[in-house]
């Protein structure tokens, strides 16, 4: 019988610091970006010292976000490869949404939703970086033909949409929906029961060698 206080290590201190910096860069790049996405959110530029400052800071936050994401991507891509079970899981999204994990195929370190989020970021982050460079005044935009700058604008908006939709799901799941998840990124550990409930294959892997 596993004890109530038994904890399983999920992230190292390095993982947590990188994730925290990534989250911070996302918040800063996101707020400065939203200011220019729609007039209703232009007031956010006041948080950064006005429009001129916001225009200056946004690309810098964006590059930082990409760097921290890249570090995470290199470490975690191998845990995010989709397997056959994952497609069965994705076919039962109704049960996922209704918290009926007992009806779902067992999940490893990451569930297919988390994996798809990861791959959508792998798509969106480089697109944001490349299109962002083509839009970056004053240093890079003048180096690109005007047609490229225009298409970069479209790509930047669409990839920002992918990023934001992913982040809304990610933040909601980690902070509000799946209770017990947040501590993985704040303290590095999760409870034994949480791991068994949400990531049974990973739990078995982490506790194999131990008696039950």
């Amino acid at each position: 019988m596993s004890g109530k206080s038994k904890l399983i290590q999920r992230y190292t201190a390095g993982d947590r610091v990188n994730h925290a910096l990534l989250a911070l860069a996302f918040i800063l790049a996101g707020l400065t970006g939203l200011a220019f996405l729609h007039p209703s959110m232009f007031w956010l530029s006041s948080l950064f010292g006005g429009g001129q400052w916001t225009q200056f800071l946004h690309p810098l936050f964006g590059v930082l976000m990409f760097v921290f994401f890249f570090v995470a991507m290199v470490k975690f891509w191998k845990y995010n490869l989709l397997t056959g079970n994952d497609f069965r899981w994705l076919g039962r999204l109704g049960d996922v949404m209704k918290n009926r994990e007992e009806n779902l195929p067992p999940v490893g370190k990451y569930n297919p939703g988390q994996k798809l989020l990861f791959w959508s970021l792998v798509l969106a982050m480089p697109l944001l970086l490349v299109s962002g460079i083509a839009l970056w005044q004053p240093w890079f935009a003048p180096m690109f033909p005007i047609g490229v700058v225009r298409v970069a604008g479209v790509v930047h908006v669409l990839s920002a949409l992918v990023l934001f939709l992913g982040m809304i799901v990610h933040i909601y799941s980690a902070l509000f929906w799946i209770k017990g998840s947040t501590r993985a990124m704040t303290r590095g550990t999760v409870t034994d029961a949480w791991a068994r409930k949400h990531h049974p294959l990973w739990h078995r892997e982490m506790t194999s060698g131990e008696k039950h």
């Binding site: 996405l37 918290n99 509000f176 929906w177």
Partner: peptide
């Protein structure tokens, strides 16, 4: 695309909000 994008982001956030009160958190 900009207003469309802002609208979809808002809808997604609203969806999460509704989910929290309709289904509720998944607790151990």
């Amino acid at each position: 695309l900009k207003p469309f994008t802002a609208g979809l982001m808002g809808l997604a956030a609203l969806g999460a909000f509704v989910h929290y009160f309709a289904v509720g958190p998944n607790e151990v």
